[in-house]
């Protein structure tokens, strides 16, 4: 029951938090900013519209949004929000889930290529390049967690005997993991400094350019998928920062959503105070995140056993 409830809250609340990013950015710019529920309004507006399909596209194009939303949703089913047991869990599910997210991206990419627009091909190439680099970081994080905890599933990471958290035995190493996971979050969700979600020029876009041809409900599905993905990464970081024990459900939930809001605020702050990197500096940024976790993984060999 608790797991259904926490999942339902997570699914319903995910579009709320990007509104926080917009609010933080507006605060830094000295503006009032859109209402907090802006993303719900956007979704409702998009769902009411009809879709326009170009003559040059095939069924692949219509498949893209559905698959990308589905892959983002499946990941949420496996995640123990605020310490509640996830709906599904098996040994090794993290690997499956990260590959599922890759499938979602793959379908977004081929949908973009299907439109035969040169801009979309360019965006797809960049997206794939950067996420390939980010994958190295993610899997090094999994290696690190395996060394710390000996498990390969989200439920075992955060709810088992020996949960991974900052307060744990080798919690200091998780500082590395948190910083690099935040960098991966920025990369994977196309935020500044890797990509600018508010840009208006196709030449400088990465993720936005791939979804230019989608409209109406299709666009809503893609946006929703993006919200879930961002929510998943923030929840991941939240669990690293604070251990959620099963004892008190409600206060856990409150703390969980407060920390998530702080993380989204941090994303908004990064976007307000940083300019995006030049394209050729982005691989360095991602490589730094990889190096950080690799540092941590090396340290587990030496002393933190």
């Amino acid at each position: 029951m608790e797991s259904y409830l926490s999942l339902a809250i997570a699914i319903l609340a995910a579009p709320l938090f990007p509104g926080i990013i917009l609010k933080v950015k507006a605060f830094f710019a000295g503006k009032k900013g859109p209402p907090l529920l802006i993303k719900y309004y956007t979704l409702a507006k998009l769902l009411q519209k009809g879709s326009v399909y170009s003559n040059s596209t095939s069924f692949v194009f219509t498949l893209g949004p559905t698959v990308s939303l589905a892959s983002a949703l499946v990941v949420l089913l496996f995640f123990p929000f605020a310490g509640a047991d996830p709906l599904f869990s098996f040994h090794g599910d993290v690997i499956v889930l990260f590959y599922l997210m890759a499938i979602g991206r793959f379908f977004t990419v081929i949908a973009a290529l299907d439109t035969a627009s040169p801009f979309e091909g360019m965006g797809a190439a960049r997206e794939v390049f950067f996420s390939t680099l980010a994958e190295a970081t993610i899997f090094t994080i999994l290696i690190l967690f395996y060394r710390l905890n000996g498990s390969l599933s989200f439920a075992e990471y955060f709810t088992g005997e020996n949960p991974i958290s900052l307060a744990g035995a080798s919690g200091a190493l998780l500082l590395f993991a948190i910083v690099s996971l935040f960098m991966v979050l920025l990369t994977e969700n196309s935020r500044v400094p890797v990509d600018d979600p508010a840009t208006h020029l196709e030449l400088t876009m990465i993720h936005e350019v791939m979804i230019l041809d989608h409209s109406g409900p299709d666009l809503a599905l893609i946006e929703l998928g993006a919200f879930y993905k961002l929510f998943f990464y923030s929840a991941f970081i939240t669990h690293l920062m604070y251990p959620f024990t099963l004892a008190h459900g409600i206060s856990n939930g409150v703390i969980f959503y407060i920390i998530i809001a702080i993380i989204y605020g941090a994303v908004g702050m990064t976007e307000s105070i940083m300019a995006r990197y030049k394209m050729n500096l982005v691989p360095k940024f991602i490589l730094t995140s990889f190096a950080l976790v690799f540092f941590a993984a090396i340290l587990t060999m030496g002393v933190f056993q």
């Binding site: 080798s170 919690g171 200091a172 500082l175 590395f176 950080l292």
Partner: peptide, 15 residues
């Protein structure tokens, strides 16, 4: 509780 020495050392390595 979090081990402060190690946390600071990790910050040094990060820097």
């Amino acid at each position: 509780m979090i081990n402060f020495t190690e946390a600071i050392l990790v910050i040094i390595l990060l820097s």
